[in-house]
């Protein structure tokens, strides 16, 4: 069937398609950050981790011809940065936000440094999973071609929810995040639990990078993330540190990226700079509406953002 113009129907379709294509990095980074923050530390450096993951996945896929190996290496590269963050952010009197900003500079610097030779060549991409066996409309078929990493993220979200609620390890992470003193009294090593949470979170963020370079947009360049890692950190807050809500919030952000171009493709083309800023405005608005000085946010880890003893 020849492709036909969809006209105005293209706008919601483009947004849905953009959501399915573009939300995987948000999802994986925000799940990683959710785990990290539940243990009581913030990792702003996931922007650098995302770039490092994107670069290493692309490089490995190009050099070995195996995109899946690229995904694993991206996770490992993320863990490497996570170890640095986890160790440094837990030193006495060291502020985790500051370490995060340093890690953004260090991680993205390293990714740009090592990634220079891989900007030009084309690397093998991850396979797509098609959910569109039932339709003949090419636009829908394309919209429903989904990244395996997105599926992975969708599967991890409820698992992580269960992990926090019901598993022994999850309770441990929450205990450390909510009341480190009590956890310490119980003989739990705060350092080890936080380190493990940060490293595991960075692993997920690294994989998020792989989904940028090996699926969508499917290329490595220095501008590939353009702040998505930072956005994902903000997203955790309005998802209330709840993994399943992270999933919904990621879908929202993925869709928001598609709004500007989709509107232009049907002829609405004023204010595109402002449309392009819509995810940021949206996050800020949601934070303003939902936060309140009278109570702590439900789900907020008690020790989050407090100084290290």
């Amino acid at each position: 069937m020849a492709s036909e113009a969809l006209g105005w129907w293209g706008v919601p379709l483009a947004i849905i398609a953009g959501t399915l294509r573009g939300s995987a990095p948000f999802l994986l980074v925000s799940l990683g950050e959710c785990l990290t923050e539940k243990s009581g530390k913030i990792n702003l450096g996931l922007e650098g981790t995302l770039l490092m993951g994107a670069m290493s996945a692309y490089a490995v896929s190009y050099l070995t011809g195996s995109p899946w190996l690229g995904v694993i290496v991206a996770g490992v590269a993320g863990m490497f940065l996570g170890v640095i963050h986890g160790w440094l952010a837990q030193q006495p009197r060291v502020n985790d936000v500051a370490v995060g900003i340093a890690m953004i500079i260090f991680g993205s610097g390293l990714a740009f440094f090592l990634g220079k030779p891989f900007i030009q060549p084309s690397a093998p991409q991850l396979p797509t999973l098609s959910l569109a066996g039932w339709t003949q409309i090419p636009q829908l078929e394309s919209a429903l071609s989904i990244s395996p990493l997105f599926i992975l993220g969708v599967a991890i979200a409820p698992l992580m929810q269960w992990f926090f609620r019901s598993s022994r390890w999850g309770l441990l992470v929450r205990a450390v995040g909510d009341s480190p003193d009590a956890a310490k009294a119980m003989g739990i090593s705060i350092f080890k639990v936080r380190m493990a949470s940060i490293v595991a979170g960075s692993f997920l963020a690294g994989i998020g990078g792989a989904s940028l370079s090996l699926f969508y947009p499917g290329s490595w360049s220095e501008r590939i993330s353009s702040g998505q890692g930072l956005m994902a950190v903000a997203l955790v807050i309005f998802a209330r540190w709840n993994p399943v809500q992270c999933l919904y919030a990621s879908l929202l952000f993925g869709g928001a990226q598609a709004i500007g171009p989709a509107l232009q493709s049907v002829g609405i083309d004023a204010y595109y700079y402002l449309f392009n800023a819509s995810p940021y405005i949206l996050t800020l608005l949601i934070m303003v509406i939902t936060c309140s000085p009278k109570r702590t946010l439900t789900g907020a880890p008690g020790s989050l953002g407090q100084a290290q003893e």
């Binding site: 483009a14 940028l212 501008r223 990226q257 500007g260 493709s265």
Partner: peptide, 14 residues
Amino acid sequence: PVREAEAANSMADQ
């Protein structure tokens, strides 16, 4: 890159 890909996809949809 993300917005370029988004633009390319939405034009293909059109």
